[in-house]
Design a binder for these strands. Structure first.
Length: 421
RNA sequence: CGGGGUGUAGCGCAGCUUGGUAGCGCGGCUGGUUUGGGACCAGUAGGUCGUAGGUUCGAAUCCUAUCACCCCGACCA
């Protein structure tokens, strides 16, 4: 792609409303713009990162037999009344009426809709287990939206649901998701940990949270040397205040801040019983289905990843998340034909190798382009100016350490292979 | 919802104390010179001063109400 057809909107300054690094950098690099409190539009640059995360999730869930669906964002109140959550969920459930005065809400989560969906089509144990997921916008009228997309009111979440005839089958599937989640966060190259958690509003008895460790995290975690542990919420329930501080001292637990990016629950029969989602077993018994649900905060991961990967110049994307694998900066390409043709040549080579590359063909000075791509955080930057074009060289800058080196054009394919981008 | 704070040009801000009809930097546009680290010169466009009401001859400035946004707490991916 070329910048002439891929608009980027970097800023020199940053709006005063952004406090944490990820929020500032996302605005400054032009990934997002605020529409209203907790609501953001995604420009191509930011949305590409979202898509990369979605694709990893999609692949790993498909690998465990989970299939993608899409459900409506606007949900009828009746379903929520069936599950008893219409009254229990609280004001973060945004409610409104349609023209016929019927009550609706914007979906913050989809247990009701999916249970209703599946119960109408599944009546035999022979159809189970079933695993379905969607990646879609959720709306929660948060008490206090914060830190940009970190805690937004409208956000993209992957939510998966499983249905079983027995708790044993649910247990097995739950472990399957846990493994898939580990693979997802490893592929995204993020520093994460898994903790025992409180299942909160969603319900159920067993749950684990996946956290990205970061100072601005909103959750308090107690972790041992192997980074295993629990959310402090759970610890408070399990132990008294006194026992807790004793336990922390004795077992050498450390207190870290985490950003919750994934949460898996064993729901059991909570929703199936309330909503009448049952199947007939091989012994002709009617059984309420056992359910699990499994969430990943897609847009939150974008912010969390930046919190773990930035310096004073900007974002430093892990290759798994970067909107582009490589950026080519041409210096004065509008006037210098040799520069332009060398840049085009490198661009063609990369395209033929299926490298996701952006060529900066704007009519701005080198300093502007350089600052922009360092800010945007593309891991591999290639610079072509007068010197390079005369000597058939390319300057290669690695964003991680900003070191530059000359590479002969003849050696460029070797370099690209070495970088495996 | 409680506490704190901010609303003036696309962004960052000054002006408000002590009322006199809006300014600076960045950005934008035009022309020219530039292009290896956010260039320079000249010109130019852009503002219901968050909104409504009040006080006054006169309000960005004083008063009242209201809205929006940000930060600290309780909720969550």
């Amino acid at each position: 792609m070329k910048v002439s057809s891929f608009p980027i909107f970097t800023l020199k300054g940053v709006p005063s409303e952004a406090e944490v690094p990820s929020h500032q950098l996302m605005i400054k690099s032009g990934m997002i713009r605020k529409l209203s409190s907790g609501q953001y539009s995604w420009y191509p640059l930011g949305y590409k990162v979202v898509k990369k995360i979605e694709e990893v999730i999609r692949q790993e869930l498909n690998n465990i037999g989970c299939r993608e669906i899409l459900m409506p964002t606007v949900q009828p109140a009746e379903l929520w009344q069936d599950s008893d959550r219409w009254d229990k969920y609280g004001p973060e459930l945004l409610r409104f009426k349609d023209r016929n005065n019927r009550d609706f809400c914007l979906g913050p989560t989809f247990e009701e809709v999916i249970t209703d969906l599946v119960k109408n089509d599944v009546s035999s144990y022979k159809n189970l287990p079933i695993n379905l997921f969607q990646i879609s916008s959720k709306f929660r009228d948060e008490i206090r939206p914060r830190f940009g997309v970190m805690r937004a009111r409208e956000f993209i979440m992957k939510d998966a649901y499983s249905f079983h005839e027995s708790s044993i089958c649910l247990d097995k599937t739950y472990e399957l998701y846990k493994t898939a989640y580990k693979r997802i966060f490893e592929r995204l190259m993020l520093d994460y940990t898994i903790v025992d958690a409180d299942s909160g509003n969603i319900g159920g008895d067993v749950s684990h949270e996946f956290h990205i460790i970061a100072d601005i995290g909103e959750d308090d975690l107690l972790l041992d040397k192997n980074m295993n542990g629990m959310n402090i919420e759970i610890a408070k329930v399990k132990y008294s205040e006194h026992d807790l501080s004793k336990l922390i001292k004795k077992s050498g637990l450390t207190h870290k801040k985490g950003i919750e990016v994934g949460h898996i629950f064993k729901l059991g029969q909570k929703y199936s019983t309330k909503m009448g989602a049952s199947v007939t077993s091989n012994k002709s018994e009617v059984i309420d289905m056992f359910m699990g649900c499994y969430g990943i905060g897609v847009t939150r991961i974008v912010a969390a990843a930046i919190e773990q990967n930035y310096d004073d110049k900007g974002i430093i994307w892990p290759s798994s998340l970067s909107p582009f694998n490589a950026a080519i900066i041409e210096i004065d390409g509008n006037k210098n034909k040799n520069v332009r043709s060398l840049a085009q040549k490198l661009y063609d080579i990369m395209q033929s190798k299926k490298i996701d590359v952006i060529l900066d063909d704007r009519q701005v000075t080198f300093g502007n382009k350089s600052k922009d791509w360092e800010l945007i955080g593309v891991p591999n930057i290639f610079i072509i100016g007068k010197k390079e074009s005369e000597e058939q060289l390319i300057t290669f800058q690695r964003r991680a350490d900003n070191k530059k080196e000359f590479v002969k054009l003849d050696d460029i394919e070797k370099l690209l292979e070495k970088l495996s981008i």
